[in-house]
Simulated scan of single mutants.
Amino acid sequence: MPHAPSSPDAPGTDTALQGWRLRLYTIIFESDTRAGRTFDIALIGLILLSVAVVVADSMPRLQPRWHGTFIALEWVFTVLFTVEYVARLVCLRHPLRYALSFFGLVDLVALLPTYLALFFPELHVLIDVRVLRLMRIFRIFKLTAYMSEYQSLGRALRASRRKITVFVTAVAMVVLVLGTVMYVVEGPANGFDSIVTAVYWAATTMTTTGYGDITPKTELGRIITSMMMLLGWGTLAVPTGIVTAEITSQRLAQGAASARTCPECLTEGHLPEARYCLHCGAHLPPWQREGA
């Protein structure tokens, strides 16, 4: 068991997370407390509302009448998200790590368009400012930071990425081979005028999309197509089984892991009784239980 550094200023101690900073950190980054869960739910609601406003403002029937209201609501959301972004940076020992993380960059990208349109209105000469406003839709990605199911799916995808890569490569090889075979069997007379076109047809057939713009005319071509359709149903089930099995194994391995987050590296999933981060070894703040 590693020992905590004796110096109060040494890296890895939680001396910087005391008082209001520790309380703010617990509310924002922890979801095992009532306050943290309430904060996450409120933030999810704001994200969904802000995205709904952006979508509604793009509708021609609503924009002439409600455009001013949509702009006012957008500024309200922007101010609230700015306060939340600053609060996240203030309560961390290393704010730059969060600012450069995926969700930190998403936060920044979601805030920039409103301020850019305010300080650079002449941008409409080069590009419609409304295009910049579409960047606010990135707020929807912030939902993944507050739902454990999203995080569990992300971990499962990362853990099974090699298996999925092998599977996708195998499917690509099958599509290439069968597309080439169909080019030979059907030929340009039946719409298969190149191997690229035949591979495109094979990909749409294997994925059961089948746009219908190219169809086989020969009996052999139809037999191959039928086999590819049946094979396509099976290929859809393989990645689902891989990811599902990985999620199940992770849940069995995690056991009683909580939503505790390391204030140093932002790693999640520490046990309630853990005192140090499982990733960087930093000292963890006391776990705040439900009702705290």
Rank of each mutant, 00 (worst) to 15 (best):
L89C: 11
L153R: 10
F103K: 02
S249R: 15
V54L: 04
D193P: 00
D107T: 01
L236W: 14
A202I: 05
I195R: 13
G241I: 00
D107N: 14
E219T: 15
T244E: 01
I195P: 06
I137P: 02
R61T: 07
W287I: 04
L231H: 08
R23S: 12
H279Q: 15
Q288D: 09
V125S: 11
L231A: 15
H3M: 10
R61F: 05
I41R: 15
A198N: 11
L49F: 10
V181E: 07
L231T: 12
V131G: 06
A10Q: 08
V175A: 15
T82E: 01
F120E: 00
L266M: 09
T240S: 09
H124R: 13
C280E: 07
I164R: 14
A274L: 07
L132D: 00
L43P: 05
V199G: 14
V83D: 02
T15I: 01
W287R: 15
V238R: 07
R289S: 12
I41T: 14
V125Y: 10
R21P: 04
C91M: 02
D14P: 01
T240G: 10
S249L: 08
I28V: 14
S101T: 01
R136M: 10
T215H: 12
A42W: 05
P8M: 07
A117Q: 04
A4P: 04
V199D: 12
E268Y: 10
V90T: 03
A35N: 06
Y183F: 14
R97V: 01
T33A: 08
S58A: 08
A202S: 15
G234K: 05
I137Y: 11
S7D: 12
A292P: 04
T261I: 11
A10I: 02
E84S: 13
A117E: 01
V171S: 05
R139K: 14
E290Y: 11
